[in-house]
Design a protein around this nucleic acid. Structure first.
Lengths: 341, 341
DNA sequence: ACCACTTAAGCAAACGTCTGCAGACTAGAG
DNA sequence: CTCTAGTCTGCAGACGTTTGCTTAAGTGGT
């Protein structure tokens, strides 16, 4: 019950192993008669070459590692799907590493990926920000990146220069805000995320900028901070609804938060979009699964993943590639918003 | 910029490669002084052994392949999460293979996994049924399973004997039906899936059985077939709502369908749960993300994945293990149902 | 001083594939 | 019939580990 090797094939075909290898890889001309004889034997034994041996020799595995914080967060399967589509065309396969937000596991995975000689690493930052990760891990990431092509997707590691592909979140915030203003809303609240995270900060700034450009004030209490979760959206919305004067529209830092806000509104018997409009961010599947369907800023998550792979691929091929790639967002209008005009 | 090998370490430490290997794996006693010297050099070069070479020799890779139809379907990340948790404890890593429902890719992946010498394969059937897959693929799966430990999660391949772990769907349907009846509902509709699929058939049978046991009729029009999608739930519910006499409760074959049904009800201005109760199946995250939160049968998807890994692990270790493992469901009562009493 | 025994370390083969080099054969031209 | 230019095939070494077998060195008992 031993494994069939290229030698066994060779012996039975009365040729050398080299020849078998050559028909396997089409790497040199071989006489038609011997080729077909070999092929036949290969079929007979259902022979498949051992990729480990090949990789050991060629120093490439056709494998890339994908590290992400939580596959259960609907954001990531979407990104992964984009990665998969792009990369399977190029013949790569993945190690999927889910860190569950645990830094220790992150470093373990990094180790493992290096041992397994992956051709490249894709690091999904996503909603959890790398910027405040502990310096030791950061060091490790940089170290690894210096040996193995690495790209950061939607993350950042300040003070280092790693290849990145990110979303233009500021632009997305602008689109959403301007859309609401154009629809006649004057009083708009923003349920944001963690105040210290760059992506949130960017969005807040963009939000304020657009408001001002349209001659509108942004009251202090109209920017609420949270933690990107549904629960945070729910409680923020409750606070908003408790006010004497409610805003007519609420813009949320991501869809999960928006769904939480929506839930709070429904619970309180406040109609969406009749009494309050809600806009989300990301366009996760959930956004169109609920009623009313969420107006949201599409992050083009699959594109994000696909682009990440392309960048990585070029790096593996040692082609020149830009350090920073930016994906532009798009506004998707559905039924959670209405025009006041 | 060549790779540092065990030989380089050995040379610098003035020992043989064998010794270095032994300190790396703790596989034989080595004098403390040399050990620490070697360790120091390893650190200095950040040396990591090449897993390919090791695997080639030892004939084990610590890697398992996971094949699933669609990572974007919220069912699968949950299962995967369970897989990951269980397997990373045992030191495995995964190739994640998303077939996108394409049979050709499935067979490609199977090939690839064999080439890469995975220690085992996890085949997620899930909502898409393997039973009606084309015989050629089936043949291939069986062929592969005869060489590499393979377990089918939530799938079946009739006429073959593969290790499986599945959910007791019939039991789940019973739980849900009985719950509704206990709550005083007499007229209950069931929005099912594909009539030809065994899982649906089982559920329908269980549903009918429980109804009868409680002295209730199941009108023919109260079992509607669909395709598990949200859209199918929506349209089925529309049909139901258009009737003169509406059932007071609707049980759905899965959560996606239930969400669709819920959406249809809301669109039509029919209150859930006041005018109609809805029960789902699976307990995907979406189920508790919407308002009202869905009463549903939990499939314990993480447990499903985790158990799959355990079974596979035992097979890899050549331990005896039951061919069939069944996971018992659990009813989760939330707010999409109400008691009529 | 010798022997038996334990502990440390080295040698070399093996895992399964690819490939540079060289040799053998074929065929066509002179 | 010889020479040349291909065309096809084999040899052997390399990739980076692990491990069974052997040898060398040290320990203590008689």
């Amino acid at each position: 019950m031993k494994q069939v090797t290229i030698y066994d094939i060779a012996k039975e075909a009365k040729v050398s192993a080299a020849t078998v290898s050559r028909v396997l890889n089409n790497t040199a001309p071989v006489k038609e008669s011997t080729r077909s004889k070999i092929m036949q034997i290969i079929h007979k034994y259902q022979f498949q070459p051992n990729a480990l041996a090949r990789s050991l020799l060629k120093k490439e595995t056709g494998t890339i590692g994908v590290i992400m914080p939580d596959i259960t967060n609907p954001f990531f399967p979407e990104v992964f799907s984009g990665i998969d589509r792009a990369a399977s065309e190029m013949g790569y396969t993945f190690f999927l590493c889910d860190t569950l937000g645990d830094t220790r596991k992150e470093s373990q995975y990094l180790h493992m990926l290096r041992e397994k000689q992956v051709d490249g690493i894709l690091f999904l930052g996503g909603r959890i920000n790398l910027s405040k990760c502990d310096p030791e891990l950061a060091e490790e990431v940089v170290e690894t990146a210096s040996r193995i092509p690495t790209v950061l997707i939607n993350g950042n590691l300040p003070g280092t220069s790693l290849h990145r592909v990110i979303l233009n979140e500021a632009k997305g915030a602008e689109l959403a805000t301007q859309f609401l203003i154009d629809a006649g809303h004057r009083s708009i609240a923003f349920i944001a995320g963690n105040e210290e995270m760059t992506t949130t900060a960017q969005k807040v700034r963009a939000f304020r900028r657009v408001m001002k450009k349209n001659g509108l004030e942004t009251a202090k209490e109209n920017v609420l901070y949270g933690d990107y979760s549904m629960a945070s959206g729910e409680s923020s919305m409750e606070k908003i609804l408790a006010r004497r004067e409610r805003p007519t529209a609420v813009f949320c830092v991501n869809d999960l938060t928006a769904v939480g806000a929506l839930k709070a509104a429904m619970k309180a018997g406040v109609s969406v979009p009749d009494e309050v409009s809600i806009v989300g961010f990301d366009d996760i599947p959930l956004a169109s699964a609920i009623y009313p369907e969420l107006t949201t800023v599409s992050q083009r998550m699959d594109l994000l993943g696909g682009t990440g792979v392309q960048v990585l691929h070029k790096m593996i091929l040692k082609e020149k590639v830009r350090m920073l790639t930016v994906i532009e967002p798009e506004l998707i209008v559905r039924n959670s918003t209405r025009s006041l005009r």
